[in-house]
Amino acid sequence: MTLDIRDLVVEHRSPGRPVVRAVAGASLTVSPGEVVGLVGESGCGKSTLARAACGLNPVTEGSITFEGRPVAPLGLRRRRETGIQMVFQDPYASLNPRRRVGDQIADGLRTARDTAATPADLLERVGLPRDFAGRHPHEFSGGQRQRVAIARALAARPRMLIGDEPISALDASAQAQVATLMRDLAVDAGAGLLFISHDLSVVRLIADRIAVMYLGRIVEVGDTAEVWANPRHPYTRALLGAIPRPDGMGVLPAELPGDVPDPANPPGGCRFHPRCPLVMDVCRDEEPRFGPVACWLHEAK
């Protein structure tokens, strides 16, 4: 029941525009009962990778298999049949605006042939009042809508759950609670969870492993506690160093120097080299194509 992404390349092509290589050779696995947190700079290709894993973005090169079978391109409708469910970054993309949310959750329950639970039960699990089932998506606040999208995905009892910023609109206490719920439900059912989030403290709370992505590639993977305590890739260090602290001091966090790179025109050599504080000659010439830390300072001996 493993999701296995190997050397994945995904390109966005649109007429009259340069080809955007949003995912440029990324490998990642998510095992049953495992929670993997995927973090990285805005625009680095996280959503593209997630959508490809659901069969929603065509694969240019490389492979994606789930339970040993290749993930086939799918329309949104038939997504449920694969056993993979995704909570989209934009909750409106997960929900049909014209149908009551209770009916949409009921669809998921039918997929799982679950006759015991009701939509109201699922709403309750994600911390919403039971009578919200009769509402339409626009009648919710931002955070409430995200909870509904999670309830809908959970109803189908997926064997792999992909959450793309699923809880970004919730307050701190609700985030911890809903993220833990997602983890518990996935782990107890032996399903995998790929959790994309900008909130590193939540990732730290629920993920077994962290994968750090930069400009289409996974630059560091490791045990959550280990990456947190001892980040090795210079990008991971910059990322962890920019978390603002709620100490009331009014300190603006550090920015990464240099321009955010354009995936249509990536720098040669190591993709991070123009912004890296530790850049060496080799970094300008050659891309570090190895893991678990794709950095010339951490070449496996």
């Binding site: 900008h198 920019a242 550090a254």
Partner: peptide, 14 residues
Amino acid sequence: TTALDVTVQAGVLR
């Protein structure tokens, strides 16, 4: 800034 990673967020806050 909810959809932004922390380094890009830092730029927007600045």
